[in-house]
């Protein structure tokens, strides 16, 4: 029998993961800056500090695998190869935005590469990911659906319904709880019956409770590879809890002052990006290689921001389009 052995990524692959995390970080910093300038309207929920989860998974996924994420979904959509300028344009509500300005920050979607949507009603996308995985099985595509959600999401009913059905139907779906210790402004521990909101509940679905360091992209990559391979072998779903932290507030300009200073300090010291940079240097990456990536990402983000700022505003003619598959919005004759 041909047992797939997941090889650890080589240095080149790890440098790519480093680059992915850095791109995500710069994207979010720019999004925040543009929000403060009033160019990004409404709201943003940034993934700064949580990049290792998105990068580890995106690096391990197959090109046709499907990603489902939350309103905190910029990292996930970007790292599934959505065009950065068009993502930023969407945040600015421009016509070139991936959703033509109809989605906004909380609804980034780029179906051509399998970023199947950012969902802003807590828990909704878990059963949707289950359905995508069900179709993958029936059509024999070998795809896996990966569903990212927060710690707070484990307390809504859809979590339970989705996990149970995924297991009963043995579906290729990987549930990834990004435990950043808070649901909005409330510490998750104060509203949850168990210490580890996802891992401690895995047993209820006959699953193994998997806890992983969500600030370590190598660990994330390995965990992702295992779960994806397991799903592709027909062994059904996995439930992974990645412990991580958002550096900023929940959304918009939230300063996050409800968090103890010492806790914030400790987590900032565990920033996944400098930690990984140092690790790769130890593993033999030259300063030239790493610095080259750093510089190239600066140019990359400048280009994305410029593209978005230069993108035209949407025409109001687009308002009544794409309600229906015929492209229009007619509800009567």
């Amino acid at each position: 029998m041909n047992v797939a052995v997941v090889a650890g990524p080589d240095l080149d692959a790890r440098l790519r993961v480093y680059r992915m995390m850095l791109e995500a970080r710069r994207f979010e910093e720019s999004a925040h800056q543009l929000f403060l300038e009033g160019l990004v309207k409404g709201t943003t929920h940034l993934g700064i500090g949580q990049e290792a989860v998105a990068a580890g998974f995106a690096a391990a996924m197959r090109a046709d695998d499907l990603t489902f994420c939350t309103y905190r979904g910029h990292n996930h959509t970007l790292l599934r190869d959505a065009p950065p300028g068009r993502l930023m344009s969407e945040l600015l509500g421009r016509s070139e935005g991936v959703c033509g300005g109809k989605g906004g920050s909380m609804h980034l979607t780029w179906a051509p590469t399998g970023a199947m949507g950012s969902y802003a009603i807590v828990g909704a996308h878990l059963p949707i990911a289950v359905g995508a995985a069900w179709a993958a099985v029936e059509r024999g595509t070998g795809q896996v659906a990966v569903c990212f959600f927060g710690d707070g999401t484990t307390n809504i009913g859809a979590f339970h319904e989705a996990l149970n059905l995924a297991v009963v139907w043995d579906l290729p779906v990987v549930f990834v709880c990004e435990n950043n210790l808070y649901m909005e402004y409330t510490p998750i521990g104060s509203v949850t019956a168990v210490e580890n909101p996802a891992a401690d509940r895995a047993a209820a679905y006959g699953l193994e409770g998997l806890l992983v360091d969500g600030n370590d992209p190598d660990a994330m990559y390995e965990t992702a590879s295992d779960a994806l391979a397991r799903a592709r072998r027909g062994k059904g779903p996995s439930l992974i809890e990645a412990i991580t932290y958002r550096h900023g507030g929940h959304s918009r300009a939230d300063p996050g002052t409800y968090r103890p200073d010492e806790e914030v300090r400790q987590w900032l010291a565990r920033d996944p990006i400098p930690m990984y940079r140092a690790r790769l240097a130890d593993a033999g990456a030259s300063e030239e290689q790493l610095g080259g990536i750093d510089q190239s990402v600066e140019l990359w983000i400048e280009a994305a921001v410029e593209e978005a700022k230069a993108a035209p505003e949407p025409s109001v003619d687009s308002i009544a389009t794409e309600v229906w598959a015929d492209g229009g919005s007619q509800w009567r004759n």
């Binding site: 289950v130 319904e161 059905l165």
Partner: peptide, 19 residues
Amino acid sequence: PISEEAIIGAVMGAAMNGL
């Protein structure tokens, strides 16, 4: 199962992916 959210979520996700 008696899981209306899972039933509707499942057909939504499946419709996105070819069924």
